[in-house]
């Protein structure tokens, strides 16, 4: 991910920069530490036990994160899947058991597609899906329209300015997402910053209703995810060989045309990466529609939340989650992996 790449490249510089300081406080201190740890009984005991079972260090390195992810990431989805087929009941937990033992050896599987049928029949859910995709898509396009000129401007700034400008793009990312969304409430509400300003200037007499509209949701998403768009675009534009534009100009291509014929196609990777980074989290967004959107701006994340917390309907919430996985997350995930592989192949 681009944000991570940025962090990482910053980190990369630091490595060799520290080289001078390391000088004498060398990593042989670490050797000493290792020797000390090894001398301890438990370490030796543990490593011997592992070796007895044919576990090399390599296997241990792989299996620790593996087991964690299997237990806490993969298994939960199987449970969600299971509960999405269960009946609602009152009590805790609020669903019927999926597997019941009819007798000691006969397992009784009860598949209940009722929850999915319910999702399909109720227009609320279909609208929420469609609305999520449209909102995320529209916000992504807006982000691209604002982000591309910004990234272009930064990439064409003096080198000494570039890092500062990038830092300014990154800074909001590190500050609380919730608080940045909250800031918009103060700006957009009826007696908020914009309305107060316009009314005091006499442009309008009545406050414009902006909070709790779709407009506010778009604004919130664009605002929150703009850094995710700018960074990959910047990386792509910065890598662009400027002599290509000179060659285009030399061959009689005007700057605007060169931009569309050369710059845009060659920064396609950045455009796709940035759009993904905005679109994916925006689709499942809960906080922004909940705080800025009105009752009409239903997005699927918010529907799931409300099914779960307000209606306490765990099976419906699970069915919403599974539908969301199949219809949205899975295609995106596949697309991203295919794209990643393509990029890897080009390298």
């Amino acid at each position: 991910m681009a944000i991570l790449g940025f962090l990482e490249s910053g980190g990369g510089h630091a490595v060799s920069r520290n080289a001078r300081e390391v000088g004498d406080s060398s990593p042989f201190v670490l050797t000493g530490l290792m020797a000390w740890i090894k001398a301890l009984g438990p370490y030796r005991w543990a490593s011997n036990r592992l070796r007895d079972r044919g576990m090399s260090g390599r296997t241990a390195v792989i299996s620790v994160p593996y087991l964690w992810l299997l237990l806490f990431f993969l298994v939960p989805f199987l449970i969600v899947l299971k509960i999405s087929f269960s009946d609602i009941r009152l009590g805790m937990p609020p669903y019927e058991p999926f597997v019941t033992w009819a007798s000691a050896h006969v397992m009784d599987l009860k598949f209940n597609f009722g929850n999915y049928a319910f999702l399909w029949e109720d227009a609320l859910y279909r609208n929420a899906y469609a609305n999520s995709i449209m909102t995320a898509g529209f916000s992504t396009i807006l982000c691209l329209l604002i982000g591309y000129p910004m990234a272009y401007g930064i990439a064409r700034s003096k080198p000494s300015w570039r890092n500062l400008l990038l830092l300014l793009v990154m800074l909001p990312f590190w500050t609380s997402f919730l608080l940045r969304v909250y800031a918009w409430i103060g700006i957009l509400k009826n007696n908020g910053l914009i309305n107060n300003l316009l009314m005091s200037m006499g442009v309008i007499d009545e406050p414009i209703v902006m909070l709790q509209t779709n407009f506010a949701v778009y604004l919130g998403i664009v605002y929150s995810y703009l850094p995710f768009m700018v960074l990959p675009l910047y990386t792509a534009i910065e890598k662009l060989d400027l002599t290509l534009l000179e060659a285009a100009a030399d061959l009689g291509c005007r700057p605007t045309k060169a931009f569309f014929k050369i710059t845009i196609p060659l920064t396609k990777g950045g455009i796709v990466a940035g759009s993904m980074l905005v679109f994916i989290p925006a689709v499942g967004e809960f906080v922004i529609p909940a705080l800025l959107g009105g009752p009409g701006s239903l997005m699927i994340g918010r529907v799931l939340w409300e099914e779960f917390f307000n209606n306490r309907s765990w099976p419906i919430a699970s069915a919403v989650a599974i539908a969301m996985l199949i219809l949205l997350v899975f295609p995106i995930w596949i697309l991203q992996r295919v794209q990643g592989r393509e990029m890897g192949a080009h390298r």
Partner: peptide
Amino acid sequence: FPHMTVQK
């Protein structure tokens, strides 16, 4: 090794 001097 970038984090070590020539000597190290």
